[in-house]
Amino acid sequence: MDKKEKIIVGIILASCFLSILIGVVLVIKPSGHGELTAGSGEKGLLSRSPGVAVIYIYGPLYVSDNDVYWNRMMRGSDRIVEQLKKAENNSDIKAVVLRINSPGGSVGAVQEVYNAVKKLREGGRKVVVSMGDVCASGGYYISCACDRLVANPGAITGSIGVIMKVSNLEGLFRKVGVEIEVIKSGKYKDMGSVSRGMTNEERKLVQEVINDAYDQFLGVVIEGRGFDEKKAGEVSQGQIFTGRQAKELGLVDETGDLKDSIRIAGELAGIEGEPRIIDLDKPMMRFFDFVMDSVPTELVKRVVNEKSRVRLEYMLQ
């Protein structure tokens, strides 16, 4: 083997080795954009510097027994609470950004997440909300538990209120000759049944339930935003606002995007420079998230199709 051939082999092997090293660096270096690795302050695997965790609340929120582990759009409140608890137990996490892109959800689910956020704050963590496209109704309820509310100027927020929808298919059933026999233990037991309309007495009862849930929401807005009852009542008639309008009304503190929210969270927590982003999703979860991006949403929706059921909702219509 002559010298020239040796040089060729050396160059080939060295370039392959160098390419592998460069490849490793390119793949593991933070992108500097995108939600998974937002912020270029991300450090190495063994870094123990204080950081900010980003928790995503995407889509309608329910206490769900069939949520999809790997899909952010399909996570139930239990998963969100689990992540908040994880942030509470991680001493590296000094602040949390709740990235909310949700029209709300069921009252129970929203209140569970709200309480978990309050507990996190009691533990000394700063919590900042970043409102994506929509952070309305139940999404706003959760936001009221946070230190700082940041919304995109065009984000939809507000819709403070409670709603419950009951279908009345009595006429349709009669038309197709379906008769539903109801045997019940009490006169209100089939209240909200699709087979008949509500009586005035039942409607009054449901209205009282709605009013109570609304009062709870109002109380949260008053406590969270420091409004008096009059002002809280004015902005809580179910109307929606853009992020900019919400800022003028005091419903949010700042207008800005996810990066701004991360920066603000870092400042509130006293982190110097750009904060490190701590991703609470397990790597396998992120892997599935990545894979599921290519699966049509309709298919995922079909897999986790929520059964129709009567429930109180803090939900944007």
Binding site: C16, V24, I28, T37, L45, F287
Partner: peptide
């Protein structure tokens, strides 16, 4: 190793997720 690194380079991944995909 070269194929796996090359394959990872062709995907839009980076940061902690890229690290996880690479180790896996």
């Amino acid at each position: 190793v070269s194929r796996i690194i090359g394959g990872a380079l062709s995907l839009p991944i980076s940061g902690g997720f890229g690290r996880a995909v690479m180790v896996f």
